Computed example of a mutant assay.
Amino acid sequence: MENSHVLQITKRHFSDLYLCFCGSAKCEPNHSFGPGIRDNYIIHYITKGKGKYYVNDTCYELSQGQGFLVEPHSQVFYQADKTNPWHYLWIGFNGTKVTQYLNDINLNSKHLTFQCNYSEDLNKIVQDMLSNNNFATSNQFLLESLLYAFFSILSKDIKPVLPSNDNNNFYVKKAIEFIENNYTNKLKITDIAKYVCITRNYLYLLFRKYLNVSPQEYVTNYRITRAEELLNSTTLSIETISNSCGYQDPLVFAKAFKAKKGFTPSQYRKKFSQEYFYNQITNNKK
């Protein structure tokens, strides 16, 4: 491993969720860890290149913009590609509520890998963590806020990445592609099944097996995630956002959004958009 930068945390002020260490590295070809276990939770996020992650007899082929969760005391092995080795960043963490927080962003034993398109934001957070490498009380609070910011970024755009060693995953991958390209329109589960050339019942079984949700739940979750982004980052009307996310009836959209987020779209925008726009303005001034 070359150009590795690591921060180890030994002094802790918090218990719900706390940072144990973080770092970034450019890996040499075939650089690997394991088989071995870790004592804390670790999220690796790939900023360049590719490699493989093995856990529970399952192989995930991962590349730029994707990442993986290592759970404590779970035997894992991961290795950089021999021709295009990955560069990645990582955060190690733990806490009394870590399982709850990971479930909130859809990372757990059933969903160990993910894709997120906010590479620059995640990289900046880790670099800020590495820059604040003394143990003053003010820095402890700053590191804690950066850890929550890392989780916040993941929650905006996290998507599952499926194992690469099961042919049935082909159908799920193609179904997800179809959903992402057509979620703005009226979308029936039969349309998805027809596109991937399997029955609706078989599609349901595959989604439950690999994603732990039904196809309909996945469509709803995807639409609400897109709506959340638009509420945060634009001044589009609720009706326009509703239509943009596949809901022809704004009342149906509002009901679905509240069921997932606990707020109506209007309430959500009032509560969170000011913070978003403040951050955007602040970043633009830098």
Rank of each mutant, 00 (worst) to 15 (best):
N3C: 06
E217C: 07
Q115G: 15
K159Q: 13
K26T: 13
R38P: 11
K258M: 08
L231P: 00
Y78K: 02
K186S: 12
N167W: 10
I91P: 06
S273K: 11
L230N: 06
R226P: 07
Y101G: 01
I43R: 01
P215R: 05
T240N: 15
Y218T: 00
Y247P: 00
Q280H: 11
H73L: 14
V76A: 06
D104N: 14
Y45L: 02
Q75T: 15
L187G: 02
E229L: 11
K209M: 07
G262K: 05
R208N: 15
I91S: 06
K261G: 04
E180I: 06
H73P: 02
I224Y: 00
E177G: 09
K173L: 09
V219S: 02
K194N: 15
V126C: 02
F272G: 04
Q274N: 14
F141S: 14
P265E: 00
L130E: 07
D81H: 08
L231N: 03
Y222L: 03
I9S: 04
N139A: 06
V126R: 00
N134M: 10
F114V: 07
K173P: 00
V196G: 02
N94I: 04
L143T: 01
N84P: 04
S273R: 14
K124P: 03
Y60W: 05
G95Q: 05
I42C: 10
K261L: 07
G51V: 05
K173E: 12
G67P: 05
N201K: 15
K110T: 15
Y45R: 00
A149L: 09
Y210R: 04
K26M: 11
T199C: 04
L89M: 08
I198D: 00
Q216V: 09
E61K: 13
I224A: 03
K173F: 06
F178S: 01
N165L: 04
D81Y: 01
N30G: 08
H31D: 14
L230R: 08
Q115A: 13
D104L: 10
H87M: 09
Y218E: 02
T240I: 09
Q280T: 14
K50A: 10
S266A: 12
V219Y: 03
